[in-house]
Design a protein around this nucleic acid. Sequence first.
RNA 1: GGCCCCAUCGUCUAGAGGCCUAGGACGGCAGAUUCUCAUUCUGCAGACCGGGAUUCGAAUUCCCGUGGGGUCACCA
Length: 507
Amino acid sequence: MVRTRIAPSPTGQPHIGTVYQALFDYVFAQKYKGDFIVRIEDTDRVRLVEGAEEAVLDALDWFGLYPDESPRKPKDVGPYRQSERLDTYKEHVDILINKFLPMIPEGKRQVDNQAHYCAYYCFCTKERLTQLREEQQRLKQVPRYDKHCAGLSRSEALERTANEDYVVRLNVPTDYVIKFDDWLVGDVEVTSKDVDDQVLMKADGFPTYHLAVVVDDNLMKITHIFRGREWLPSTPKHIILYYYFGWHRPIYIHLPLILNMDGKGKLSKRHGHSSVNYYREEGYLPDAIINYLANIVWNHPEGKEIFDIEEFEDKLHINQIGGAVTVYANTNEKVKEIVSKGGQEAFITSQAPRFDLDKLTWMNQRYIQEVKSEAELETLIKDFFPKASDLPEETLKNLIPLLKSRMVTLKDFESLTKFFFAPPTGFVLTETEREIANDLQSAFEGLAEWNKDSILTIMKELLEKYKIRMPLLYKITTGSERGLPLPESLEILGKEKTLSNLNYLLN
RNA sequence: GGCCCCAUCGUCUAGAGGCCUAGGACGGCAGAUUCUCAUUCUGCAGACCGGGAUUCGAAUUCCCGUGGGGUCACCA
């Protein structure tokens, strides 16, 4: 049974990167009739933002990335908020603290030696750690915890926990190679020298991400982890954790990072628009964003660029799901490894693409123009721009075909239809313009048949008579020098409204 | 800096040794259609990071550079 998950931390506005990851979680689970789970990673009490959890959950719904399980829809592996799972983490930290390192042979295990356990208590102060780091940096060494407290006897450490602040650290063995593989990246191999003794339990009793993610993914029976490439370097820690616990690890799929438009760094607030809310407010369609996100890292086999999420799900080629995943250590002589083997299947780009707002905007336009039906567009507009519902039902309906090829985002509705809501304002007519407006007014008044042909005839006469161009008539009737086709939209607006707009302008 | 990942038009990419004079899309430019603006259509400019090696033949394989990105917290 496939189970995927997204684990956002509620620290701000919902991020496009979260949607990008959730898209894969959702589609993959969907494709293999599995479950897609949302778990809130709120272990950082300092950065926690009120309402952020609601915002991510809402954002996922907006995109149609409905979870099978979430804080709003709990099933039997909950709770789905890490802050409500503290006992579980405590329990698992205790397991590691009391478990001997598997690489130490039974006869050599010392009960009172912290260094012989999978995890150990650490009492180092922030000051000492900072000092240590600075010293290492000065010597051009990689900043790393020096296992100072691992040298403590277990009995002394236990005593000190009674009245001192402490953290619990992962005891990473020296001289090991940690191997694992990733469906996208392939085989990855790092030496344990490059893996720090991660803090697993903070002084405030909250777990760090690394502990919580492994424990939860295991307890929630997650089979496939889609996450950003930025997590690749910390995966060895997780592999070690799975190994120490004696669990099978899930399959990793580290998705390519999406870079800022200028290619400087991963998608962030500073360089562009990383917040889901921005796109929502600007009138982008969720389907178009999903399409763009999928298309940026994946290519449709037939080269299509416009496709919906169902088609993405259908065509996304991922074989090797499931399969036995083993985590074991080979401590024979020279080859000492912590190995974890899964499968491998490259199915999307391995590069980090840049976020191209122009292309997304183009896609949005395609959705408005050809993907969405007129009825769908009508509801989209009404949702986005409630004032649109004030227009007579027929008016809006007739306007849609005119609007379709001219709207790039839903937001464009407002400027395009301004004169349907209020007479044009904000400019003064010159003498001749006034004269033309007067002419137009009387000609319109005398019109027996109010339709686009008769309107056009009148306008053509005026164009001829005054030797002017179309934009001027636009200005007089709509307040803007360009916009929707004039005869058609004036027909829809109606004789009465058109005349009252003109009247307003002339007085 | 250590470790990891990556490298085709400005951007997203196709390309899995000869089909490549390197294809498409966005963006740009020019033109056609048109009652404005759009849409639509046509055309133009535009790339294999560098150097070696393998081969009859390399964008495609291998090495070395270079460049870019990620990551090195009691943040996720």
